[in-house]
Design a protein around this nucleic acid. Sequence first.
DNA 1: ACAGCGACTGATCAATTGATCAAGATGGGG
DNA 2: CCCCATCTTGATCAATTGATCAGTCGCTGT
Lengths: 208, 208
Amino acid sequence: MSALKSKAAEAQSGGDARERILAAARKSFASAGFEGAATRQIAAEAGVAQSLLLYHFKSKDALWRAVIDHMFADLNGRMDIAARRARSGTVRERLMSVIRAFIEICSEDADIHRIMTIEGRQPTDRLGWLVEKHLRDNYRAACAMIQEGQALGVVRQGDPTLLYYSFIAIAGTAFSLAPEIELVSERAVAVDPAVIERLITALLFISE
Amino acid sequence: MSALKSKAAEAQSGGDARERILAAARKSFASAGFEGAATRQIAAEAGVAQSLLLYHFKSKDALWRAVIDHMFADLNGRMDIAARRARSGTVRERLMSVIRAFIEICSEDADIHRIMTIEGRQPTDRLGWLVEKHLRDNYRAACAMIQEGQALGVVRQGDPTLLYYSFIAIAGTAFSLAPEIELVSERAVAVDPAVIERLITALLFISE
DNA sequence: ACAGCGACTGATCAATTGATCAAGATGGGG
DNA sequence: CCCCATCTTGATCAATTGATCAGTCGCTGT
């Protein structure tokens, strides 16, 4: 059976080449953007031939989409868990649960915010695909919570979309712009997730 | 005299080619990054031959630096004016003056934040040059104000560097990520600078 | 043992990249 | 009038780009 074959191949040594390519591609796309990333460099970093990259993924575009799928499968899974965990709590508790999860994800892997900002600049078909497949639901759920909080007088008034992007900007930038931050401040900067959480709290909620 | 010659050439039709190239290059660098931008496409958008681009600027790298110089000459000039305008006011007034100026700049030209984030990801020699030549002074002045406010109990406690980048992230993202925001929210989003100002105020200062 | 299949590589393609060079335009000063 | 400096263009370079294809290796089922 093909299932057993691929599993066996994955177990020994060959199958993880695909995942090494995915990991290398994510780094390149995050730092150089889609057009700036070169398939040969990605393949070299993964330790495979460039042709293997296009064997596993049909094209550079398909590779990019696979990277995004891989990234957001983990992200949205953890966000859903965080949302479910605090389902019975207050609006503030529910919001803080997903915010805390998002901060944790950004602190572990800055590539997500990097790719979102680098690809979110111009409206390509890639951006439309990303938004509809992975971002829209997350956005809707967060906005619903924000509006609920605003109706109760807990969350600051204002366009929910702007509040949503403001807290994403704070949490994401602190980690994804680390190279620039360290260069400007001329010292090693270890961003504490708890500090970011406090800033977002001050931004979002009316009373401390 | 060469000065008169160049001035005459600038007056008629040829001299503004340089500025058209600069404008086109800024757009390309902002949306595609340094490696993603192509000199031929920049030249085409400026309506000139690609070789003219490398005649006015020695190389693609030199063109990038010229774009940055042109951008930050305006930015830092306006920031200095804003800082000087409120020199005799309270810490809060002085901070709000430069923040208001920064928001205004971001709302007029999203390219600045785009280039800063796209280039700030990996520590290249370009980033080091940008930081030392255009960013460092701005950062130091802002941090000094923040620390002064913290000592007086007006500004929220915490790493000044993080506060600095948080307000930059909010102001910049709201405008530079407009395409993505409109796609996610499925409507036209006109960001009001006054709303951004209110968010940053909530983030930065202790009492409203 | 052998045929078959999936993983993988090296060679190679046309297209595009940044860069260089010779030559043409243009206009002002002698 | 001509000359010279400046601006501008088209042709062209080697290098790199994403993509394709023929062929090799190693394993599996029969």
